[in-house]
Nucleic acid binder design. Structure first.
Length: 585
DNA sequence: AGAAAGATGAACGGTTTG
DNA sequence: CAAACCGTTCATCTTTCT
């Protein structure tokens, strides 16, 4: 993993690499220009030409390193709404452009030909774009190199590590070589961390690596699977019933699965997000996470509330066992007092997904008014109104004609947390609902993690990203798996306090390190942390679902969304840890 | 008292799936 | 067609600070 470029991928990589490095060094004194000749200084603010509501979108993709013309074409073909398919289209364009033989392949086996030929004539400006790409205003020698690398799309961390390792007087070619080698040599199937939109500097060159990889996979999959017909590539299908590889007391269990080579640990990883994400999201997530097939599970098979989630992990799936005591499995078991008031025409036995907001008092009052005139048996249209509202807001019956939202401690119970886990410490009721609504269902996660107990009798070192209120930590603790060193990264101070408080109250023997921002967690810091206790055994994370969740009416923007794009940081960090751990072995 | 910060409530569709 | 969905934003009320 030193300066050697010999990639495991074979000729394509070498050729591509050299080509790019050559391009770069040749062009390293010009300035970055767009096809229209406009010079671009640093980040994001490219192209102000479009002027419409599209311009922000266009800027977004230009910031990712695509040419303006390509972006315009992709938007035209996909419509400006579907950013995911725009991205896919752009990736396809770039993949085609990056490999000479790509065109033929796509021609021969790509099913959707509607755009073929319409974009092949765009490559000239792509070339001019990438050829002219460069850096302006270097400062000191080290800064200059750092800046150059960052502009090429590498992270600051990657850049500084490379400078540190190769020495200050190494050439840019050597430095890029080092970084690419570090990332490629390890596993054939690993592609570059795609920094996505929060970092608008991702260069076209670097993107080409990534795209080519993406295209290759796509092609492979396409050959295997789809002889059917249509457009969208392998869309991940949700299982029905949603029991993943198996849940307790259910007949059909998957006994065995074969993980892709690149996915096999160490470390173990466990990623979570909402199952009902926009189309294509889980395909992307799975592709990034080493092509591991997601496990979709509804927590209604574990507790009295639904929670449809997808989990991508490389943890063995045999010999799982549930947490004891088993949580109540119906509303009546969970809240016996409701039985007395539950009308016969409300057929619910399970609650719907526990979300971040709860029904208001005014709503429960409207419902009371709507049914109090009828003696226990309202007309059907009133029943429907009440039931719809009850299902939407997860209301339960707490008195005659009286419904109410759950209390925070009741939500804690349903989700498998200790009572009052989120209470106190200056945390408001609203914030409790919010934190709980964003959390894991502990019994579900614990079931998946249970097989680790036998494998780590002395405990584990855990990296917990987007920890929230510590669902993973609580699950492991309840499984009786000792927590040796826990690095917990969570942006919300309130949540960090909750985890810290839980940590102290449960008399943990281990060491809890909490950090605020995943984006600040770089290679240096990771090496430092891992060096002190010898690497992580497990990396857990449920990245923000804000832009994926169905309840979001305003910004359901997919994985490219403001918060949900932090998924790429999960991948980045996971990949870094894998890299570091392979290196030190 | 008045400003500032915090908490609460209500209105706000659309995508995806069976 | 029904049913479900780890949500956002703004107005208003409440509490705290000066």
């Amino acid at each position: 993993m030193d300066g050697d470029t010999s990639g495991v991928e074979g000729d394509n990589w070498n050729t591509d690499d050299e080509l790019e490095i050559d391009n770069f060094s040749l062009s390293s004194n010009s300035s970055l220009t767009l096809p229209n000749g406009e010079a671009v200084a640093c980040s994001g603010e490219a192209s102000s030409s479009a002027g419409s509501s599209n311009s922000k979108l266009i800027d977004h993709f230009i910031g990712m390193g695509f040419s303006e013309k390509m972006v315009a074409k992709a938007i035209q073909e996909n419509g400006k709404e579907n950013t995911d398919s725009i991205l896919e289209t752009l990736l396809t364009y770039s993949a085609l452009e990056s490999s000479p033989q790509g065109q033929q392949h796509i021609d021969s086996d790509h099913c959707s030909l509607e755009c073929e030929g319409s974009f092949l004539d765009d490559f000239s400006d792509v070339d001019s774009f990438s050829d002219n790409e460069e850096i302006t205003n270097p400062v000191s020698d080290e800064d200059e190199k750092l800046l150059s690398l960052v502009k090429m799309g590498y992270t600051r961390d990657e850049a500084s590590i490379a400078i540190e390792r190769c020495g200050l007087d190494s050439s840019l070619v050597e430095l890029t070589d080092f970084i690419t080698a570090a990332q490629m040599a390890k596993v054939a199937d690993v592609h570059f961390p795609l920094e996505d939109k929060p970092r608008p500097n991702l260069s076209y060159k670097k993107r080409k690596h990534f795209d080519y990889e993406m295209w290759k996979r796509k092609k492979q999959r396409g050959l295997e699977k789809r002889l059917l017909h249509d457009d969208d590539d392998e869309i991940v299908r949700l299982p029905n019933p949603m029991i993943g590889f198996g849940v307790p007391n259910e007949m059909c269990q998957t006994i065995h699965r074969t993980l892709p080579e690149a996915a096999i640990g160490p470390p173990f990883f466990y990623y979570e997000n909402v199952a009902l994400a926009p189309k294509g999201v889980w395909t992307t997530i799975s592709r990034f996470l080493y092509d591991v097939e997601p496990e979709f599970v509804d927590s209604k098979y574990f507790c009295a509330a639904a929670r449809k989630r997808g989990y991508v992990h490389n943890i063995p799936i045999h010999d799982r066992y549930p947490l004891v005591p088993l949580p109540p499995s119906t509303i009546f078991e969970a809240f016996p007092l409701t039985k007395k008031w539950w009308p016969s025409w409300d057929p619910r036995t399970k609650l719907n997904c526990l979300q971040t907001c709860v029904g208001s008092a005014k709503l429960t009052e409207r419902i009371r008014k709507a049914i109090e005139d009828y003696d226990g048996e309202p007309p059907l249209h009133v029943q429907k109104y009440v039931l719809d509202e009850c299902r939407k807001w997860n209301l339960v019956w707490v008195g005659r004609n009286k419904v109410a939202p759950l209390e925070p401690d009741e939500v804690e119970k349903l989700l498998g947390f200790p009572t009052n886990h989120t209470r106190g410490g200056g945390i408001s009721r609203t914030d409790r609902f919010k934190s709980l609504g964003n959390s894991f269902q502990v019994d579900t996660v614990a079931y998946h993690l249970s097989v680790l107990k036998a494998m780590f009798p002395n405990g584990i070192n855990l990296l917990s990203l987007f920890s929230g209120i510590g669902g993973a930590e609580v699950a492991l603790h309840r499984l009786g798996i000792p927590l040796k060193n826990v690095v917990s990264v969570e942006i919300s101070e309130v949540n960090r306090n909750i985890v810290r408080s839980w940590w102290e109250q449960t008399n943990q023997r281990g060491n809890l390190i909490d950090l605020a921002d995943v984006q600040q967690l770089n290679g240096d810091r990771l090496e430092e942390l891992m060096g002190s206790f010898g690497g992580f055994d497990l990396i857990v994370g449920g990245s923000p679902c804000n832009n994926l969740a169905g309840s979001n009416r305003l910004h359901r923007d997919g994985l490219g969304g403001k918060e949900s794009s932090l998924f790429y940081d999960y991948f980045r960090i996971l990949d870094l840890v894998k890299c570091i751990m392979n290196k030190t072995q």
